[in-house]
Amino acid sequence: MDVYLKGFLIACKGIPTTVVVSLIAIVLGAALGLLLALCSQTKSKILQVIAKVYVDVIRGTPMLVQALIMAYGVPWLLQSWGSAFKWDNLGGLVVPAVIVCGCNSAAYMSEVIRSGIQAIDKGQMEAARSLGMTHGMAMRLIIIPQAVRVILPAFANEFVTLIKETSVLGYVGVVEILRRGQLWNSSSFETFPAYIGVALAYMILTIPLSKIINGYERKVARRESAA
């Protein structure tokens, strides 16, 4: 049993890295996702195409491949063009890891945000515009605040997914939860305790978060039915 406890404690050392990467990535993803959602809603064909291509490329490729390209391929390419670029100058390999997670999340968030905006009755936009608000003002003051409430559960679910997906970052040298377990396994060969420990470390992050989401959804459902 001691060895299982050890495996768990070792995996837990990766929690700060996993949490920090996930948090920065979800903020980045939400901001970029909002931008993409707004692009896909504009009248500009060019912006629509850019948003569509972005989402297709990100959703059509595994995050691991994106991480490898970002961490290894991008510096190599830029250096072959004569640039002195390296991730180490920007703070190390955790930087491309956060960027990839954020960009990946943005593709999913943009779909969530877009459906959230579309779920708002079009009378809201008309009422706002009839008061003389510009389109941007109406989005900012009327539509987006309402859409946020609609998408909050989906947003939190995306956060849970993102926490689990950061496990691929060990491949590019980020020592998060899974990598802690792998490194310990590679020297101790305690394979099963190592991966059980890793699984439990993820669970203490994801299960409470899922419970909070469920609680919020129940609260909203109660309020709607009371209204």
Partner: peptide
């Protein structure tokens, strides 16, 4: 149009108050 609309109020069939 944005400045012209400030001269014209509008009342809708389905009210369209801002629920938030």
């Amino acid at each position: 149009i944005d400045s012209m609309r400030t001269k014209m109020g509008m009342v809708f069939q389905s009210f369209n108050l801002f629920p938030h």
